[in-house]
Nucleic acid binder design. Structure first.
Lengths: 157, 157
DNA sequence: TGTTATTGATTGATATGTAAAATAAATGGC
DNA sequence: GCCATTTATTTTACATATCAATCAATAACA
C-alpha cells in the first residue's frame, strides 16, 4: 500500500488528499502527537507533566535562578501559564520562588535539590525513550529528517 | 551555521545534543507546534478551535449523523472530551444531537446547514495556509518528508 | 519632580486533554 | 424474565493553553 493510502486509511477519510502539502501537514501533526503521548506517559510515571519537566530542565541547564519572563521565552508556555506551573512545582518542593533582585517585580525561580534529584531519575529513561521512538531510522534518515524539519520550520517564526 | 547549531540557538540550550535521536524529536515537536499555532489562529479568526473544526470536518466527510464514540475514534480527543466539544458546537448551532437510533444510549451528532456553511468559508483559507506552511519545500522534499514521518510513526502505535 | 508609559507577574474566564468514576441502556447467560 | 456484564455517554477533577484585565514596580520624560 502506498504511503498516501496508509495515512488515508489511518484517518478513515473517504476522500484522497487534495495536495501533497496537506498530506505533509497531517503527517507532521499526527507523528508529533504520537511521540508526545509517549513522553507524556513517561513524565506522568514520575509525577510530572511535560511542561513541568521542561521548566525543571531549563533551570538545571541554566544553573541559576531565572525570572518567569525568561522561563516563558524558552518554552511554548505563555507568561500567565508560568504562574500556575511554578505554583505546582513549588508545592512539590521542586522549585522555589525568590524576590531578591534589584527589580522587585521579578520573581526568580530556582530548582531545589529535590528538583535536581527528580531530573536525574529521568535522564536515563528519557535517553532510552528517544531511541525507542526514532531509533529505527538510520543515521542518514535522521539527518535528512532534521534537515527537512528545519527547512519546514524556517518560514514559521 | 549548521542545522544543529540553529536549533540549539533557538532553544537557548548551552549543551550540545547528546544524540541525533534527541535532536530529531525536539525538531519534530517544535515544528509541529509552530504549524499548529498557524492553524489555530486561522480557526480562531472563524470562531472555532482546532478540535471543533476537526469534528465538523469529520461530520461533513461522513455525510450522516455519527455517535460520539465514532467521533472520538477519529480524533485525538478522548471520549469524555467529546461531550463538552459537542456542547459548545451545539450552542453555536453548528451541530445537533439526536437520539434516534435503535440503541438509545447512542447520541447521534449531525452537522447543521450553518455548520456546513462555516466549513465552506474555511476551505479556501485552509488550502492556502497549507501551501504557506510547507509550500517552500519542493515536491521531492515533501514526498521525502512524508516517507520519513510515516516511517517514524510506524512503530508508535 | 510628577505624570505617564512600560514591564513583570498574577488572576480570571474559557477551552481542551486526561483519568477515574458514575449513570443509563443494552446484551448474554441462566 | 432476572441479573451480571458490557457499552455509550456523561460527570468530575486536575493540568494546561490562551486571552484580557489588573496590580505593582520601574523607566521615561516633559
Amino acid at each position: 500500500m502506498s504511503d498516501r493510502g496508509k495515512l488515508q486509511q489511518e484517518l478513515k477519510k473517504k476522500t484522497p488528499f487534495t495536495s501533497l502539502e496537506q498530506e505533509v501537514v497531517l503527517n507532521l501533526m499526527r507523528t508529533a502527537d504520537k511521540v508526545q503521548i509517549r513522553f507524556t506517559r513517561l513524565f506522568r510515571d514520575h509525577d510530572l507533566t511535560p511542561s513541568q519537566y521542561n521548566i525543571l530542565r531549563i533551570l538545571r541547564g541554566e544553573g541559576k535562578p531565572l525570572p518567569c519572563m525568561e522561563i516563558a521565552s524558552r518554552t511554548i508556555t505563555e507568561v500567565p501559564g508560568i504562574t500556575g506551573l511554578i505554583d505546582r512545582l513549588e508545592q512539590k518542593d521542586l522549585v522555589a520562588r525568590q524576590r531578591d533582585g534589584q527589580d522587585r517585580r521579578e520573581v526568580h525561580v530556582t530548582i531545589t535539590p529535590a528538583g535536581l534529584a527528580k531530573l536525574e531519575t529521568l535522564d536515563q529513561p528519557l535517553e532510552e525513550l528517544h531511541r525507542q521512538v526514532v531509533g529505527h531510522l538510520s543515521p542518514d534518515e535522521l539527518t535528512q529528517l532534521n534537515r527537512l524539519l528545519e527547512k519546514a520550520r524556517a518560514t514559521l517564526g
